[in-house]
Amino acid sequence: MKPPVTGRRVLVSGASRGLGRAVCRAFAANGDRVAVHYGSREDEARVTLESLEGEGHGLVGGDLADPAGAAAVESAAAELLGGIDVLVNNAAVNVAHPLAETSYEEWVDAWQRHVAVNLLGTSNLSYLAARRMIGQGTGGRIVNIGSRGAFKGEPDHPAYGATKAAVHALGQSLAVSLAPHGIGVASVAPGFFDTERVAPRLGGAEGDAIRAQSPFGRVASAQEVASAVLWLASPEAEWASGAVLDLNGASYLRT
C-alpha cells in the first residue's frame, strides 16, 4: 500500500549511495522533499540528489560522529526544508574486526567508531529532530535502519551488531516517550541486501552461499527495504510505533 502524497520534509542520513539513496528516491517519488545527508562522499550524494523526482530537495553535509556536526546537519536540513517531519537514521559504519585477528588498538578504534556513528550519531540526530517536531506541534516520524545482525550475531563485525541492537532499543524507548507528541518511532532490521558496497561479495565466490541464507534463494534489493521505510513513516503506520520490522526473507526467524 503506497502512502498518499503529503509533501513532507524528510532528512535521510547517510544518503550518498546504497540504501540511503533508495530511501531518498522512495520519499521523493511519494511527493516529499528530501534533505540528502552525506559525511564525506559529496560527489555520490550529488548523484543521489540529481536522481530524485520533484523539486525542493538539497544536500546537507556533516560528520554525525561529532555532536556539533550532528547539530549542524539537523539545523541545515531544517533550514533547507523549512522544518523536519520525518527523520531516517541510515548513516552507519561497518568495518570488520574479528577478535582473534584484530589487535587491541584496532579493536578499541573499531568500537569507538561504531559507537560514535551508529549509536551516538543516531541518538543525537533523533534528539534534535524530535525536539524540532515537538516544537512544530504537528507530530512526525523517525525510522531507524537496524540490522538482522543485532539478533543473529556478527562474529566478524561485533561492534556493528551491538550498536544496531542498541539502535533498536533506542527506537523502542523513544517510541514510548514521543508518542504523546504524535511522533512515531520504528526500526527495520534488514538481512543481506544488494548495494554497490556488497556487489563484489555477491558476484564472488561467496555469492551463492549468501543468497542461500534465504529460502527465496536471493537477497533483497535496496528498493524493497526503502519501501518498508516509506510505509513506517506514513500516517497509516502510527500503530507500528515501537516495532522492529524484520526484512530478511526468512533467513533468520526471531522467537
Rank of each mutant, 00 (worst) to 15 (best):
Leu178Thr: 08
Val10Tyr: 13
Ser103Lys: 02
Leu80Gly: 11
Ser126Met: 01
Phe27Thr: 02
Ala100Cys: 02
Gly153Thr: 06
Gly56Ala: 13
Ala186Gln: 08
Glu53Phe: 05
Ser214Tyr: 13
Leu125Ser: 12
Glu50Gly: 07
Pro155Ile: 07
Glu101Tyr: 03
Ala175Trp: 04
Gly31Arg: 11
Gly39Thr: 05
Ser241Tyr: 08
Ala26Phe: 10
Asp63Lys: 06
Ala65Ser: 15
Val229Tyr: 02
Leu245Ala: 08
Gly153Met: 09
Gly18Leu: 13
Ser16Ile: 14
Val86Asp: 10
Ala96Cys: 00
Ala199Arg: 15
Gly182Thr: 09
Gly204Thr: 11
Ala228Ile: 00
Ser177Ala: 14
Tyr252Ala: 11
Arg211Thr: 13
Leu80Trp: 15
Ile84Glu: 08
Ile210Asp: 08
Leu174Trp: 13
Ala76Cys: 12
Ser13Pro: 00
Ser103Cys: 05
Val86Trp: 04
Val176Met: 04
Gly121Asn: 05
Asp109Arg: 15
Ser241Arg: 15
Gln172Cys: 03
His97Ala: 15
Arg46Phe: 12
Arg8Thr: 10
Leu232Arg: 04
Pro200Ile: 14
Asn248Leu: 13
Gly153Ile: 10
Pro200Tyr: 14
Ser75Ile: 02
Leu80Glu: 13
Leu120Pro: 00
Cys24Val: 05
Gly54Gln: 02
Gly191Pro: 06
Ser123Tyr: 11
Ala150Phe: 01
Ala78Gln: 12
Ala162Lys: 02
Gly242Ser: 10
Ala130Asp: 01
Val10Arg: 10
Gly146Phe: 03
Arg148Asn: 07
Pro67Ala: 13
Trp107Tyr: 14
Arg197Asp: 14
Val108Pro: 01
Glu154Tyr: 08
Ala186Leu: 11
Tyr252Gly: 04
Leu59Gln: 09
